[in-house]
Amino acid sequence: MIFLDAAATTPVRREVIEAMWPYLTGEFGNASSHHTLGDSAAAALRQARETVAAVLGCLPGEIVFTAGGTEADNLAIKGIALARQAENPARRRLLISAVEHPAVLESARYLARFHGFTVDIVPVDRDGEVGVADFASRLGDDVALASVMYANNEIGTVQPLAALAAAARSASVPIHTDAVQAAGWLPLTVADLGVDALSLSGHKIGAPKGIGALYLRARIQAEPVLHGGGQERGSRSGTENVAFAVALATALRLAEAERATAAERVTALRDGFIAEVLDRIPGAQLTGHRTRRLPSVASFCFPGTSGESVLLELERRSVLCSSGSACAAGSDDPSAVLTAIGIAGELAQTAVRFSFGTSVTEAMLKDAADAVVESVTELGRLQRS
């Protein structure tokens, strides 16, 4: 099998398994317990927090471990917005880009339904990019929070995040970014990005499913989403998952160490794959920005086909990929991201996303391109007959 669905998940790295293993076995203590096993767990948790903070260039106390990217997004959106509203009831507007992950969008909709917020959806252009001037024009004293994802999980477009964050900072509006897909491919130094909150997920970079982290800038208040014993400095109650925190820290450290080399190599392979598909399949359309995109994502619409049918044909040819976000699995609706960039619903349902891990090779993508051509050609022939 050729696995080209790394945006959905990645295999757990051996180094990560080895790093977390002691805390699943002999070092099983609760980090809040005041005895030897507890002290050992607390030390491991502290080291994991310091490792994540080092990659992001922030203070360890600004890192909150969560159960994944979705929880990190929920904590950022709900937590910051509710804290800002409590501080000033006039702050009832949220700025959310039109291509956000459902974890961000649904959190904003929750706040609208139950807490009186209004959600201002910031449009994107045909490449999926937020316009800085348009974004800046929507900022105001009534805005509780802005959220623009760093890089899109479906089409790969990378946002001008530093410029957007600078505009938000000038208006004294905190800004969050979902950086789940960016980790391992793009720089994560929060001072350079200018963001106040940033979400990460471990299983996109070689850690297990079920661990994530939120960077929350010091002095940015956030109401907790989970209440209880006050772990994670009161931001996220619940017994800390020490083994998985160690796993995330290890995976993130390794991904950052390899990032520049991997991004350069995979970008070249991605561009070759895109060129091959567009050259050999009449009418194929690339979605997302042609160059300002993740090294790891190539997404297309194939007019006259069904994206799901293409997936089935590709799997018959030993290529695994996706018709869009794995978080929208089971939905028959066209992708909200594709409709946001102006693609008609019928065409959006022909979409196929190929996303690459760091181990992808030129030979794999050559075989995959051949399989794509064969699959789309076969489906077109069947439709004409």
Rank of each mutant, 00 (worst) to 15 (best):
E223N: 11
P224R: 11
V225F: 07
Q231F: 15
E232S: 08
S235H: 14
S235G: 07
S237R: 09
S237N: 09
E240Q: 14
E240H: 14
N241I: 13
N241G: 13
V242S: 08
A243Q: 06
F244R: 11
V246G: 14
L248A: 12
L248V: 10
A249R: 10
A249Q: 15
R253G: 12
L254H: 11
A257H: 09
A257T: 14
R259P: 06
A263W: 04
E264A: 15
T267M: 08
A268K: 12
R270M: 01
R270F: 00
R270S: 05
G272A: 06
F273V: 01
I274K: 04
I274A: 04
A275N: 10
I281E: 00
Q285L: 05
L286S: 00
L286E: 01
L286Q: 05
T287W: 00
G288A: 10
H289S: 14
R292T: 15
L294K: 08
L294P: 05
L294M: 08
P295K: 08
P295S: 10
A298E: 05
S299E: 04
F300Q: 01
F302A: 03
P303S: 02
S306R: 13
G307Q: 01
G307L: 00
G307H: 01
G307E: 01
E308C: 04
E308N: 10
E308K: 11
V310I: 06
L311M: 04
L311C: 03
L312N: 11
R317I: 05
V319P: 00
V319I: 06
C321V: 04
S322Y: 02
C327G: 07
A329K: 11
A329F: 07
D332L: 11
S335R: 02
T339K: 04
I341K: 05
G342V: 06
